[in-house]
Amino acid sequence: MKKTISLLLIFISVLAYSQENDDFSQRLKAINTQSVTYYNVDGVDFSSQTYNYDFSEKSLKKIYKKFNIKDTDLKTKDESLPFNNLHVVKKQNITDNLTQNNSYYFIEDNSKTITIIWFGYYHKPSEDFEKEYITRIINNTIPKNVFESMKIDSIDFAGRKIKLGNNCYWTNVNTVQCPYNGEMNWSVHKNIESAKTAIENQFIITKNRGGIKVISEEQTAVIFEGTETTAKKVVFDFTGMKSLLAGMSGGKTLTVYYVAEKVRDNYVSCVMSFWNNDNITKDGLAPLLEEVMQLKI
């Protein structure tokens, strides 16, 4: 049972938003669950969900509790949006040099109910990005083809179809897990700088979690989607992590590869991992990882 690792390592995607128009055909992806819709574009994760409440102070207070928003948190109306709304920003220091900014919009949608749209950043928030996607979500103008099917038979990996069968599942947008065969997440970017920032921030966030220790860290020559490049290989020790996650994984160490590289017409950030008790091929990787990367010997 490995499904919880993505909550620790893979669930967090990080990046500065490119100011150029996004390409719906490849760079924006989404997953629609029964209660929440998750999105990813240029490495930025955001989500939306709707509550069947009227946009009133009483209703909003109920919802604030669900998002850990306190009475003392500043709530402002964004007058530039064509919807009745309240905006809340909360910050969390990850390290001295890395801060997570959480931007929440509580919006009276076209059905007169409340839609909450969340954006998470590890840099200064982009108001233009937020407003663009709020408008698209509320007006339901995001193309249907960017939504992935919840049932996995194959995945679109940055423009290449990879057949995986029915033993794998999504744990987030562009995050796939195959029990005992590895896990990976990726984002498609407009430039290499944002891709490199994404994998570096994922590494920083993981190594700064309590109970996790870096055993080793090295640069490794690999072939990623047919291109010779370098990956950061890190082995994490989870034996000191006293949580449900460590207990359910069954593993004691996690090997992770971080890669940022040009793939076809875009740039990809990719984080791939496997536990010490996963299935490992003769070439030293879990089967899922070998779908996109090989070690260069």
Rank of each mutant, 00 (worst) to 15 (best):
G284T: 02
D278S: 02
E148Y: 13
K61Q: 04
T229R: 01
K232H: 04
L7F: 12
V146H: 09
V259G: 01
F224Q: 03
K3G: 06
F83C: 04
F238G: 03
V256T: 05
Q294T: 15
Q100S: 15
S80T: 14
N21A: 13
S249Y: 14
L60D: 02
I192S: 09
C168A: 15
F11P: 04
A286S: 07
G182I: 04
F24Q: 08
E290K: 12
S25R: 14
N181H: 12
S56L: 05
Y38L: 11
N52M: 11
F11R: 14
N32R: 14
F83K: 02
D128H: 10
T95W: 05
I116H: 02
Q92K: 15
D54M: 07
K2L: 11
K161R: 10
G43M: 02
L7V: 03
N101M: 08
Q219A: 06
K124R: 12
F46Q: 01
K161F: 11
T113A: 12
W170C: 05
F147E: 09
K296W: 09
N201A: 10
S194I: 07
G226L: 00
T72P: 08
P287L: 04
N93Q: 14
E20Q: 14
L289H: 03
I137S: 01
D71A: 14
D78P: 10
L285R: 01
L164I: 11
D128W: 06
N21I: 06
N191A: 05
N208C: 00
K233N: 11
F11T: 08
D283I: 07
I192V: 09
V234F: 09
N101S: 15
Q92P: 06
I138K: 05
Y121T: 14
N139F: 07
E200A: 12
T253M: 12
R209P: 00
K29T: 12
E228F: 03
L9Q: 11
E132F: 08
V44W: 02
F55T: 04
K124T: 15
I10Y: 13
Y53F: 15
E200K: 10
G250T: 03
A195W: 06
M150L: 15
E225C: 09
V235H: 08
V88F: 09
E79H: 13
F55L: 11
P143I: 05
S187I: 08
S243P: 06
V188A: 04
F129I: 01
Y53V: 07
L86H: 10
D71V: 11
P143W: 07
T229I: 02
T141I: 06
N40I: 00
E79P: 07
I10R: 10
D128E: 13
E57F: 02
N84G: 07
N93G: 10
Q26I: 13
Y64P: 00
Q26K: 13
D96H: 12
K90V: 04
F238L: 04
L60C: 02
A198N: 12
D22I: 15
R264H: 09
W118M: 09
M272K: 03
D265Q: 14
S111K: 09
T230G: 12
P143E: 05
K144S: 13
F46I: 03
L9S: 11
C168V: 13
D78Y: 10
I204W: 00
L295E: 05
M184T: 04
T95C: 05
S18Y: 01
A198D: 08
